[in-house]
Amino acid sequence: MTPLVFAALVFAGSVAAGCLGALTGLGGGVVVISMLVLGFGVDLRYAIGASLVAVIATSTGSAAAYVREGYTNTRLAMLLEVATAAGAITGAYVAGFLRSDVIVYVFAAVLFWSAWNAMREPVASPTAAQDQTPDPLATRLNLDSSYPTPKGLQTYRVRNVPGAFVVMLLAGVLSAVVGIGSGVFKVLAMDRLMHLPFKVSTTTSNFMIGVTAAASAGVYLHRGQLEPTLCAPVALGAMAGALIGTKILAKAKVPWLRVVFAITIAVSGVQMVIRAFQGNV
């Protein structure tokens, strides 16, 4: 494969990753790792470094649009970033002592668990803020907000802040071990524990994962996992894909987004397990 063909294919794959990442709040790291390891035979450690770059590219590229349009809850994001950043720094050290095959199994387990979770209907569908009693802690933290819907701005209340905080701490550790922004945990915590509207959960996750990934990027840079010739086409593709994703999200129906979310992570999990069984990690 010539350098031009390689760069073009990696770019194209990263466009898909960025688009899916922006739509699902997952950042697209999952897709980039699968593509590089399974499609191009890249060593998992380079792939993890590149996926970190893809996640930051998707997060930053899509967040500009989502923040401006009012989907992202920037206060909630900042609060939960305390937990994810602390977890990410811890995880970056743990990862250095783990074997690649162990990381792959952890990765796959997380993906299956998440896919199964995402397909279940929400326990209580988010209702208008007027119908809910305010949560004292969320009120103290000024977290209740609104987001755009086809029928205009819809207000919502935030609840179960401590539970989500703990999950975010674990999400941060895992994101650094696995090399993805662990948007999976972020989306699920906001969707399942806090009962936020799905588009608020995914876009706020998207906003946060860039910071989580950046927190551990220093460690990966120092370890030599950020190969520029690989990261450049990945970054360019993911940014382009993220821009496409933001255009789609505004019009997309939530049940469809949930299915895309679940399928994306389940397919990636299957690919990782196959690879691990073949011993090619």
Binding site: P3, A7, D43, R45, E227, A232
Partner: peptide, 24 residues
């Protein structure tokens, strides 16, 4: 990234070996 990528392609910089892992 785009400038670097285009320059490397024009100058025919050989592709980096991405397996096994050797670090950048």
């Amino acid at each position: 990234c785009a400038t670097g990528l285009v320059l490397s392609l024009i100058r025919g910089v050989p592709r980096a070996t991405l397996k096994p892992f050797k670090g950048v």
